[in-house]
Design a protein around this nucleic acid. Structure first.
Lengths: 222, 222
DNA sequence: TTTGAAAGTGTATTTAGCACACGAAGTATC
DNA sequence: GATACTTCGTGTGCTAAATACACTTTCAAA
């Protein structure tokens, strides 16, 4: 069996929660509409799963120290049996008939610092709204959906939201991020009480600049 | 790469939380002490991961409808490189040098109803205390440990405890189960309030029999 | 009838969850 | 320099959940 790692890369642009997709290279001979997919690759011979996930990310961007978390193994024997999926496999895989198990990871990146690598192994990359994802290759729609559920869960349990924000952020930005990930409105005062109680962030001696209203205090992760 | 599923089977005997181990068959030619392992097997060609896990369980016991949950993929390239592990692989695997990725599942069985199958594919089976596990084959100690952490987590979130108890149980049994899994004392009155509020169990019109004290009310899952 | 052993139950206190509104601090415009 | 605009930052009361805590009841056995 082939084993791959697929990475659902989340980013936040202060307005929407995004997922990074790459356009799958197409066989020159076929002229189908290209498909998009979540970045992923086969696990190499001497590589752990975590290492494979890290490598895949680093082939897309030069960021280091990115938050990465394994969340589920997808092993349905037919997960790779779509028509386009098969054509793609026949062109780009040594053993196109081989079953592919994939280990899903999700990753949180600071969109502000994200620069796609010029010579990336794959095709063009796109950020798309997590709530408006087009039809993807393989079972990647399911993978993204499950990643989002796991992210929600972990956001509430471990308050990892700041991984998606710049080093310095305001509590309003953080709240908006929570609202978008959890897909519900939160009360400002209660949100602040809760976040400050968890002590995952710390106030800086610094204020927001260049805004046309009262500048907010900046925070960073503790 | 080979892909296997390993099943951490939990059982509860009213006193301790147990894990099912099987004694690995040993090559006739070698005379090492046998190793124990968690039940597991390679995933077959046309089988999903969940199906593989179910099959492994059914090769050990004839119980149906057993609670099963995927919890983690273990993919370190060296997870299978111990001396005894290698000997075992060379004897019983077609491709002993091939790397093995395993998907960890845990499973909750009613120990009272558990009967090991006579002609089980594997060696003898044992139940051992989860808090006193001997040294196991491969990375199975790590797998069991992680399974326990996940079980704790899910017990609190989803109140699945009764999966480990007979059809009819008392709240004291359930409480003891929680105390052992979570490894801490709970207050009786608060525990009852909480469990009854979650409405995952329902009171029967029936009482415990054959005990030498006030008989307790029986409950079953709702 | 007494003893032993677990069952079953209520209250008071503390803590977390939730709803809710207004003055303060900046920038831009006239 | 007054006004308008925008977001920031804050506190209180209410309700629900979490925790601590001890005595009476019910049965079987001796």
């Amino acid at each position: 069996m082939d084993v791959s790692v697929d990475c659902v890369v989340f980013g936040f642009d202060n307005d929407t929660l995004k997922v990074l997709l790459i356009e799958q290279k197409q066989p020159d001979t076929v002229h189908l509409k290209t498909q998009n997919a979540v970045p992923g690759d086969l696990v190499l011979d001497n590589e752990s799963l975590d290492e494979a996930a890290k490598r895949i990310l680093q082939e897309l961007t030069s960021l280091k120290g990115i938050y990465l978390k394994q969340f589920h193994a997808f092993g349905d024997p037919n997960r790779v049996r779509g028509l386009k999926d098969q054509q793609w496999l026949r062109t780009f895989r040594v053993n196109p008939e081989r079953r592919v198990l994939t280990i899903g990871y999700y990753s949180l990146v600071k969109l502000s610092e994200f620069k796609p690598k010029a010579a990336s192994f794959a095709g063009k990359t796109y950020w798309v709204d997590v709530y408006n994802i087009p039809s993807l290759a393989f079972d990647h729609n399911e993978i993204v959906h499950k990643a989002l559920l796991m992210l929600r869960h972990e956001l509430m349990a471990d308050h990892i939201g700041f991984e998606l924000l710049p080093e310095k952020f305001t509590l309003s930005q953080l709240q908006k991020l929570y609202e978008i990930i959890l897909d519900k409105k939160l009360d400002k005062r209660n949100f602040r009480k809760n976040i400050l109680r968890t002590e995952t962030v710390t106030a800086l001696e610094e204020k927001q600049q260049g805004v046309l209203h009262k500048p907010a205090q900046l925070f960073s992760k503790k």
